[in-house]
Amino acid sequence: MSGFEPRVVAFLCRWCAAAGADLAGTNRLQYPPHAIPIRVNCSGRVEPQWVVEALKAGADGVLIGGCHPGDCHYVVGNYKTRRRVYLLRKVLEEMGIEPERVRLEWVSATEGGRFAQVMAEFVAELKRLGPLHEPGGPG
């Protein structure tokens, strides 16, 4: 798997995770470039179907970044996300897909370092898991 570079889609909430990613940039913190960010207002907007579509369309993993519990800009959106991801991971696992490929992380707007670290960890984990798709698969 040495040459394997995982493909990742990262759904980031605008107020915390995406702002944290911006801060990582402002601080020039380098992290693996594998994830394409898609910014949404709240992690609560993220639908399980988007996550699965990403996996089907060629992603090896999907990251969902939201606000820490208690910090959601919309008060309770991240709690819904947490439960959806919890259940989605159960379904994926039962299908035979490693649930670790779907990751929910709380990253605040001040945690640029944490964002970079989460990215690095996730990409490392996906490299360890190996590709979800055959070479030349979708995407």
Binding site: E47, P48, Q49, V52, P69, G70, V76, Y79, K80, R83, R84, Y86, L87, L88, V91
Partner: peptide, 21 residues
């Protein structure tokens, strides 16, 4: 996908008291 759509709805509706950690 009806299963994923319903999964999202069910997870959204779950409440064990006040939402929070």
């Amino acid at each position: 996908d009806p299963a994923l759509a319903m999964l999202s709805a069910l997870a959204s509706l779950v409440r064990a008291g006040e939402e929070g950690e």
